[in-house]
Every structure is written in C-alpha cells, then in structure tokens.
Amino acid sequence: MNGGVEVNGEPESSDSMKTFGAFVQGLREHAGLSREEFGARVHMSKHSVASIELGRRLADQSFVDAAEGVLGNTGALRKAFGRVARQPGFAVWFRKWAALEQEAVSLATYECRLVPGLLQCEPYVRVVFGNRIPPLSDEQVEAQSVARMERQYVLHERPNTSFSFVMDEHVVRRRLGGAEVTRMQLDHMLACAQLRNVEVQIMPMESEVHAGLGGPLALLETADGRRLAYSEGQQTGQLIADPKEAAILHRRYATLRAQALSSWDSVSLLERIRGEL
C-alpha cells in the first residue's frame, strides 16, 4: 500500500492546523533554525517538522512544550495550540487502518503497481505525485511528499514490528523518473532490506504461478491476535475486518511469499538490476 495519508485525493486538514503550522514555521525561521536543526532540538525528524508546518500533521502537547523551550518560552505556541481543530490528516477510508497500524506486531504489503510507500525514496515519491491526474500544485506535491516520507519512521522506530514486502519484478525494473531516480530508489530499498525487521521479496517475471493476481494488498496482525487486511484502488480503499475474509487474504499472501524469490535472492536481483543502470 502507498500510505492512505496522501493517496487518492487531498488529505484532510483544517485551516487552524495550517495556521498553527505557519506560526511554528515563522517562529522557527525567526530563530534562525533550519527544519533539521529545529527537529533535532524537539526530537523530531525534519520531515515531521515540515508536516506540522504545512498543516498535514497534528502537533501534540510534547511537541508544543519542547518547541516553546527552543523558541523562547513566550507561551504563544501553547495559546495557538489550544485553538487547533483536531482533524486527522488521513484519507477518510484510511483512518481506521492507520490507527490499527500503530498497534500492529506485523505488517505485510504486496504491490504490483509501484514501490510500496514505506520503501519509497524521496525523489521517487516526488515523481509519483508529479504524475498525478489531475495535476497537483507545487504546494500539494510538497505536502504529499513530506507526509509520505514522515510515515516511514515506523521502519526504524519500531524494531519489534515485522515488515514484509512482496512486489512484482516489473515494479523495480520500471524506470519511473529516469535512470538516476531508479538508482536512488534501488539503493534505498537495498538499505531498507538490511534492517533486521524488514524483509523484501521479488516475484520474478518468469514465474508461472502468482497468488496475487487480485491486486495490491496490505495485511496486519495486532498484539491480541487479530488479523486484518486493507485493499486500495482508485479513489477508494477498504478495511477488511471479517475474520474469514481476512484469513483468505492472509493465506494468499503466505502463498505469494512462497512463490516469490527468497529475501536473499531478491536482494541479489535488486543488486543486479542496479548494476545494469
């Protein structure tokens, strides 16, 4: 899946979130700090800071308290924060799934269209949004890209959660954005594949069997043993919570993993494709 925060139309936000974000940005710039420098002081990535400043992510009290300390302790941020309309920055159909992701002990994704959102490098992300129809404005591309990059923190900050990715070989061979973007994307995927909690597998083009012909699929399991699924299409997405239906999709994914190259052979294939560019 590609991260419902930004898929299929404008993510929801509120004017007060955008106003609060602009206020944070103004104070940060007045203090002479870059997003990266400010982020380090409030214990956030520069992508997370950007997402708050652009009104795409709702700040929490810990951010406000930390930011106040960095930006002068005037109390202005706390007052502004009290007026923020708390409206989630996720597409409507993705909200429940996004909340469930925060509890998941395992997450699995199959993709046949493009590199899964959690594995996309920033140049690739910008190409993806640059290809949207109808076209997005520069501001929209920036906001969407920041949100997608921010979501990737889960790979690094949740080492006890298992992540599995299966994608068709043509996805990683497609030179979306050109050879240079493709090289960066392959390098990024290879780096992610080195994480102990991440497994990347490729379904080879010459395979004569394929359990994923029904389309893209995301699966998760919660700590209490619930198994759910999420299916995403054009302009919509569906959370599948019925135990019988979810069980079928989990079996399909298990078969798909068995049919795909092993993680070791998949990394070798990605390296060969990278060497051909």
Results as ranks from 00 to 15, higher is better:
residue 5 V to Q: 10
residue 8 N to C: 14
residue 9 G to P: 11
residue 9 G to C: 11
residue 10 E to H: 13
residue 12 E to I: 09
residue 15 D to A: 15
residue 16 S to Y: 04
residue 16 S to V: 13
residue 17 M to R: 09
residue 18 K to H: 10
residue 22 A to Y: 09
residue 22 A to G: 10
residue 25 Q to W: 09
residue 28 R to I: 11
residue 28 R to H: 07
residue 31 A to R: 14
residue 36 E to Y: 08
residue 37 E to S: 09
residue 37 E to H: 06
residue 38 F to M: 12
residue 38 F to Q: 09
residue 39 G to M: 06
residue 41 R to W: 10
residue 43 H to K: 13
residue 43 H to V: 06
residue 44 M to D: 15
residue 46 K to R: 15
residue 50 A to I: 09
residue 50 A to W: 07
residue 51 S to I: 11
residue 53 E to S: 07
residue 57 R to N: 14
residue 59 A to W: 06
residue 61 Q to R: 12
residue 63 F to T: 11
residue 67 A to N: 13
residue 67 A to C: 13
residue 70 V to Q: 14
residue 70 V to M: 04
residue 70 V to W: 14
residue 71 L to H: 08
residue 78 R to P: 12
residue 79 K to S: 06
residue 81 F to Y: 15
residue 82 G to N: 10
residue 82 G to P: 14
residue 82 G to A: 01
residue 87 Q to C: 11
residue 88 P to W: 07
residue 90 F to H: 09
residue 92 V to Q: 12
residue 93 W to I: 02
residue 98 A to C: 10
residue 99 A to Q: 14
residue 99 A to T: 10
residue 103 E to Q: 13
residue 104 A to V: 01
residue 106 S to G: 13
residue 107 L to R: 01
residue 107 L to S: 01
residue 108 A to K: 03
residue 115 V to H: 01
residue 116 P to T: 01
residue 117 G to C: 03
residue 117 G to A: 05
residue 119 L to Q: 06
residue 119 L to R: 00
residue 120 Q to G: 06
residue 122 E to M: 07
residue 124 Y to C: 00
residue 125 V to A: 14
residue 125 V to G: 03
residue 132 R to Q: 15
residue 136 L to H: 12
residue 137 S to N: 10
residue 137 S to V: 11
residue 141 V to P: 03
residue 146 V to H: 02
residue 149 M to V: 04
residue 150 E to Q: 06
residue 151 R to P: 00
residue 151 R to C: 00
residue 154 V to R: 00
residue 159 P to I: 00
residue 161 T to Q: 00
residue 162 S to N: 10
residue 163 F to D: 01
residue 165 F to C: 00
residue 166 V to I: 05
residue 168 D to N: 04
residue 171 V to K: 03
residue 171 V to R: 01
residue 172 V to G: 04
residue 175 R to P: 08
residue 177 G to Y: 09
residue 184 M to T: 14
residue 184 M to Y: 15
residue 184 M to D: 09
residue 185 Q to D: 04
residue 185 Q to K: 10
residue 185 Q to M: 04
residue 187 D to F: 12
residue 189 M to E: 00
residue 191 A to F: 14
residue 200 V to Q: 05
residue 204 P to H: 10
residue 205 M to G: 11
residue 206 E to T: 09
residue 207 S to D: 14
residue 208 E to C: 13
residue 210 H to V: 15
residue 212 G to S: 04
residue 212 G to P: 05
residue 213 L to E: 13
residue 216 P to T: 13
residue 218 A to H: 03
residue 223 A to M: 15
residue 225 G to Y: 05
residue 226 R to H: 08
residue 227 R to S: 04
residue 227 R to E: 11
residue 232 E to Y: 04
residue 234 Q to N: 11
residue 238 Q to M: 14
residue 241 A to W: 03
residue 242 D to K: 12
residue 244 K to P: 12
residue 245 E to D: 09
residue 246 A to G: 13
residue 253 Y to C: 06
residue 256 L to K: 01
residue 256 L to Y: 02
residue 258 A to Q: 10
residue 259 Q to P: 03
residue 260 A to C: 09
residue 267 V to Y: 11
residue 267 V to K: 08
residue 268 S to R: 15
residue 274 R to S: 12
residue 276 E to P: 09
residue 276 E to Q: 13
